[in-house]
Amino acid sequence: MSDPSLKVLVVEDSRTVGAFLSTTLRAFGYACEVVTTGAEALDHYGAAKPDLILLDVMLPDMEGFAVAERIRRSDPESWVPIIFLTSLESEDDLSRGIEVGGDDYLTKPVSRVVLKAKIHAMERIVAMRRRLIELTAQLSEANKALARQSEEDALTGLANRRMFDLILAREIEHSRRTKQPLTLALFDVDYFKRYNDALGHIHGDQCLREVAQVLRRACRRATDLPARYGGEEFALILPNTPRTGARLLVQGVARLLAGARIAHPDSPIGEFVTFSGGMTTVIASETTTSLSLVRAADEALYAAKGAGRNRVISFDGDSAPAPAPEAR
């Protein structure tokens, strides 16, 4: 059965042949347009994008070979079947037609039976190509989804641990090259196990989502990266951010979290969810690694917990932890 959506462009300077082909193709159930010159064919191809072209080799303004060659050059990513119409039967002409981008030949006078057979063959190829395009688009979307899954934490929508590791390594190299400061902050939701024990894991998951949203809102630069480091632990990678700027941002995170007023029914330090944090700021040297930064921020985080929680402590270089503004 013919595909009524198949659009055929006939390029034929003979009015008689053009009328025959047009009538025959429409009788077969195809949409058909007829033009008589190479220039018209090129214009129509650019405007209408036919699914199949029947192209006379001998045209009044240029050879059909030249038309086919220009179509292929103008749209190399696409493919439209081209069947040459010719009275020529030499092997050189056949070879040339294939070289310039033709796919098949019809010898004049054109037989209805042969025309229908060749159109059907090309129709199958067009259908397979359309399906291939659909599958390619589906594969592309699937690959994008997989990429998101490989970089995004499923629960919070923040960058996951894998993405965190990749970006931290990249930003260390950038800091080393540009001599600009880089800040890493780690946060831990205070008494999160007691929150889960009191309200259950469904509420616990929602709490983590809300904390993630707070971190996302606090990061206004495209280069700042909030991430879920693991469990109830979160991270911020802040490129080109000195210690003072990082402190201000962390204060902003604390204010946003306080404003969220996430009730904590079993916290010894308050009625709402709080966090403890540790941060470190460096201008990366040859010895700076992701491990050394995470270790420094983690030591500061544990110092914050030891100091009573609900606060952030900064650890810079080899200096001892020094208290930053409390997250209240």
Rank of each mutant, 00 (worst) to 15 (best):
I125N: 03
K108M: 00
M128L: 08
G157S: 14
H44A: 09
A66L: 13
L158H: 09
Y45S: 12
W79L: 08
M58G: 09
I98F: 15
A48L: 14
I119V: 15
K116I: 00
A142D: 07
S74C: 06
M122N: 03
I82A: 12
F65M: 15
V110G: 01
L94T: 01
E77A: 12
W79Q: 02
V80C: 05
T156Q: 12
H44W: 06
K116L: 01
T107N: 09
S74A: 15
L106T: 06
D93M: 14
L85S: 11
M122Q: 06
L139F: 10
L88T: 13
Y45H: 14
R130P: 05
D93K: 09
G64V: 03
L132K: 04
R112S: 14
N160I: 08
G97K: 06
G157L: 10
A47K: 15
R70K: 07
K144T: 02
S87D: 04
D56I: 01
S90T: 12
Y105Q: 00
R129N: 07
E63W: 10
L158C: 08
M62D: 02
D93Q: 10
V126Q: 07
V57F: 05
K118L: 02
R162K: 15
G102H: 06
L94I: 08
A154C: 11
A147H: 14
I71H: 03
S78F: 10
L55K: 01
V80I: 15
Q138A: 06
M163H: 14
K49R: 15
R96T: 07
D104H: 04
R73S: 09
M163Y: 12
E89K: 14
E63Y: 07
R130F: 05
Y105N: 00
V114N: 06
K118E: 01
G64S: 04
E152C: 15
T156Y: 06
I53M: 03
V100Y: 04
M128C: 04
Y45C: 14
I119Y: 00
A68I: 03
P60M: 14
E141L: 13
V100P: 04
I83H: 01
T136V: 09
M122R: 01
R162D: 10
A66G: 02
D51S: 14
A47W: 13
L132C: 06
K118N: 02
R96D: 08
L94K: 15
G102K: 09
R130K: 10
A147V: 06
A137E: 08
P50M: 11
L115E: 04
